[in-house]
């Protein structure tokens, strides 16, 4: 179809049309960039959200450079020095196998972030695809897809994740799939709403007139324009995903020992709660710090995006 039009039209006749679309898109780009810039500026004015961002960045860096930062190997056992209180050598003490808790907390961040990232990718791709199709074609297909999403949303996310995780078994990829399934409806709805608002724009119309296929329009014209709200939504989600991962690991699903994961460290340390507090304290503090940072940042981001607060 698109080939037909190109051969029948002279290149000269095709160029202005495409040129116009380019300019329009460029104008749109600059508008969006300046909008992003003003959001960024408003975000920077909010000190608490900057603190939150810094906390989160530290955790991300610690996760990436875990090997360089961690004072010990996270799996190195030293049974003669098990359950040692915090000291100069072991800042957070050692666990029941004599492993350094600080190193395990640092590696635990790596696992949490990795699984959360995988989960986000899976739910974004699946949910995004459903949302784009639903929003672009609307009609019966849209109705069916959205009702299915409604049904999935009727089951609380954590419960669904528990079921999927129990069925698939533990492990990094299985946990990512479990939390991702619970996150699909949210992305699908957001994407659908975005696509429906973009669908009517002139540049989409123009692409259609040029004879581009539906798939090509979705990928080239619509999806790129949904990115910034999607990125914001994802930022607000990371915390919930990390919490879900550690909760799953805590109840014996999710990521299991010997892998260092905050939730499974807490569940393994539970039996020592009477005699040795560091083992149940520090992994929890790590989760709390992560969520605290993400919450602060998320609050700031939400405020910065709220046009009513514009001065």
């Amino acid at each position: 179809m698109s080939g037909d039009i190109k051969t029948s039209d002279s290149p000269a006749g095709d160029e202005p049309k495409r040129g116009m679309m380019e300019t329009e898109r460029r104008i749109d780009d600059t508008r969006r960039r300046s909008q992003m810039l003003s959001i960024w500026k408003r975000l920077c004015r909010n000190k608490l959200s900057i603190i939150g961002m810094i906390i989160f960045l530290i955790l991300v860096l610690a996760a990436i450079f875990a090997k360089q930062i961690a004072p010990y190997d996270y799996s190195a056992q030293d049974l003669t020095n098990a359950l040692a209180m915090p000291s100069a050598e072991h800042w957070m003490g050692t666990d029941d196998f004599g492993r350094d808790i600080l190193s395990r907390v640092i590696y635990g961040g790596r696992i949490s972030l990795l699984v959360a990232l995988l989960g986000i990718i899976i739910s974004l791709v699946a949910g995004g695809l459903i949302g784009v199709i639903s929003g672009y074609y609307s009609g019966t297909l849209d109705g069916i897809l959205m009702r299915i999403m409604d049904v999935i949303m009727a089951i609380p996310g954590f419960l669904l994740a528990v079921c999927v995780s129990a069925a698939l078994g533990s492990g990094v990829l299985n946990t990512a799939i479990a939390i991702a399934i619970a996150g699909i409806p949210g992305y699908a709805r957001l994407m659908r709403a975005l696509v429906m608002s973009i669908r009517g724009n002139e540049y989409v119309e123009a692409a259609r007139v040029c004879g581009q296929s539906g798939f090509r329009i979705m990928i080239r014209e619509i999806v790129p324009n949904t990115l910034s709200p999607i990125i914001v939504d994802t930022t607000l989600r990371i915390g919930a995903y990390i919490l879900m991962i550690s909760s799953l690991s805590f109840i014996g699903l999710g990521v299991q020992p010997p892998e260092a994961e905050w939730g499974s460290m807490l569940s393994a340390g539970r039996q020592y709660i009477r005699s040795f507090w560091p083992i149940v304290t520090f992994p929890g503090l790590a989760i709390m710090a992560t969520l605290f940072g993400l919450n602060l940042f998320g609050d700031g981001l939400r405020d910065a995006l709220d046009p009513r607060l514009k001065k």
Partner: peptide, 22 residues
């Protein structure tokens, strides 16, 4: 409220148990 909103429920449960039961 931000601190409490950031606390995972299961950890809070453990800490409460440590403090007020043990």
């Amino acid at each position: 409220s931000l601190v409490f909103a950031s606390m995972p429920g299961f950890w809070l449960a453990l800490m409460l148990m440590l403090a007020f039961a043990l």
